[in-house]
Simulated assay, not measured.
Amino acid sequence: MVEAVEDRAPFQVLVLPYRQTEGGLLYALFRRLDGAYWQGVAGGGEAGEAPLQAARRETAEEAGLAGDFEFIELDARASIPVVSVTGEFTWGPEVLVLPEYAFGVRADASELALSSEHTEYSWFSFNEAMSAVRWDSNRTALWELDHRLRRSSVAGES
């Protein structure tokens, strides 16, 4: 069901939960109910929200991560055809694509919860996650997040 335009902001968010384990970094992906593919937490902004606010809300709704979690704003951006998101030209004929803003969220000790949009979630290594996701925007955001986390880990060990 498409939300009314007054309730929906013309942007998307992508959030990649991650955790540090003894075996290395792991990334949570969610299998979509309507397409049976893996992706990060994804959703649209609501009217009046900034991308980080939308990322926090979507992460609480889709993964059960509500509260004071550490989010990392990524530089990765994608453009998604508006009709692929809402099924129509929701904001008129001039809004053809929506920007997608990407974030990472640290979820070390947290158990994730599933929304009705997903059938399951799983934790993946970087290489497994890169192979599992369907969308290039997810791969780009995963690469950037992994690089940032590994770089900060190495810098922290110096």
Rank of each mutant, 00 (worst) to 15 (best):
residue 36 A to R: 12
residue 36 A to L: 11
residue 37 Y to W: 09
residue 37 Y to F: 14
residue 37 Y to V: 14
residue 37 Y to I: 13
residue 38 W to N: 03
residue 38 W to V: 12
residue 38 W to A: 08
residue 38 W to K: 14
residue 38 W to S: 13
residue 39 Q to S: 13
residue 39 Q to M: 10
residue 39 Q to F: 00
residue 39 Q to L: 04
residue 39 Q to I: 01
residue 40 G to C: 04
residue 40 G to D: 05
residue 40 G to V: 07
residue 41 V to F: 11
residue 41 V to Y: 02
residue 42 A to S: 10
residue 42 A to V: 10
residue 42 A to R: 11
residue 42 A to M: 11
residue 42 A to G: 10
residue 43 G to A: 09
residue 43 G to R: 01
residue 43 G to E: 05
residue 44 G to R: 07
residue 44 G to L: 00
residue 44 G to A: 12
residue 44 G to I: 01
residue 44 G to P: 01
residue 44 G to C: 05
residue 45 G to L: 04
residue 45 G to E: 06
residue 45 G to Y: 04
residue 45 G to N: 07
residue 46 E to V: 02
residue 46 E to P: 00
residue 47 A to H: 05
residue 47 A to K: 14
residue 48 G to I: 00
residue 48 G to T: 02
residue 48 G to L: 08
residue 48 G to D: 03
residue 48 G to R: 15
residue 49 E to Y: 02
residue 49 E to K: 04
residue 50 A to E: 11
residue 51 P to Y: 03
residue 51 P to T: 10
residue 51 P to D: 07
residue 52 L to A: 07
residue 52 L to P: 00
residue 52 L to H: 00
residue 52 L to R: 10
residue 52 L to I: 11
residue 53 Q to Y: 00
residue 53 Q to C: 00
residue 54 A to R: 08
residue 54 A to P: 03
residue 55 A to M: 04
residue 55 A to P: 01
residue 55 A to E: 01
residue 55 A to G: 02
residue 55 A to K: 02
residue 55 A to R: 02
residue 56 R to P: 00
residue 56 R to K: 09
residue 57 R to E: 08
residue 57 R to L: 05
residue 58 E to C: 01
residue 58 E to S: 07
residue 58 E to H: 01
residue 59 T to M: 08
residue 59 T to F: 04
residue 59 T to L: 13
residue 59 T to K: 09
residue 59 T to D: 12
residue 59 T to N: 06
residue 60 A to M: 04
residue 61 E to N: 13
residue 61 E to C: 01
residue 62 E to V: 09
residue 63 A to S: 05
residue 63 A to V: 13
residue 63 A to M: 07
residue 63 A to I: 12
residue 64 G to L: 10
residue 66 A to D: 12
residue 67 G to T: 11
residue 67 G to I: 06
residue 67 G to W: 09
residue 68 D to R: 14
residue 68 D to F: 01
residue 69 F to V: 09
residue 69 F to A: 07
residue 69 F to T: 02
residue 69 F to E: 02
residue 70 E to M: 12
residue 70 E to Y: 13
residue 71 F to A: 04
residue 71 F to N: 11
residue 71 F to R: 10
residue 71 F to D: 04
residue 72 I to P: 01
residue 72 I to Q: 14
residue 73 E to N: 14
residue 73 E to P: 14
residue 74 L to D: 09
residue 74 L to Y: 12
residue 74 L to R: 13
residue 74 L to S: 14
residue 75 D to V: 14
residue 75 D to Y: 12
residue 75 D to I: 10
residue 76 A to P: 08
residue 76 A to N: 07
residue 76 A to V: 08
residue 77 R to S: 05
residue 77 R to P: 06
residue 78 A to C: 03
residue 78 A to V: 02
residue 79 S to M: 15
residue 79 S to Y: 09
residue 80 I to M: 05
residue 80 I to F: 03
residue 80 I to L: 05
residue 80 I to D: 06
residue 80 I to Y: 05
residue 81 P to W: 05
residue 81 P to C: 13
residue 81 P to H: 12
residue 81 P to N: 10
residue 82 V to K: 03
residue 82 V to N: 04
residue 83 V to Y: 05
residue 84 S to I: 00
residue 84 S to P: 00
residue 84 S to Y: 09
residue 84 S to K: 08
residue 84 S to W: 11
residue 84 S to D: 15
residue 85 V to K: 05
residue 85 V to Y: 03
residue 85 V to H: 08
residue 85 V to W: 06
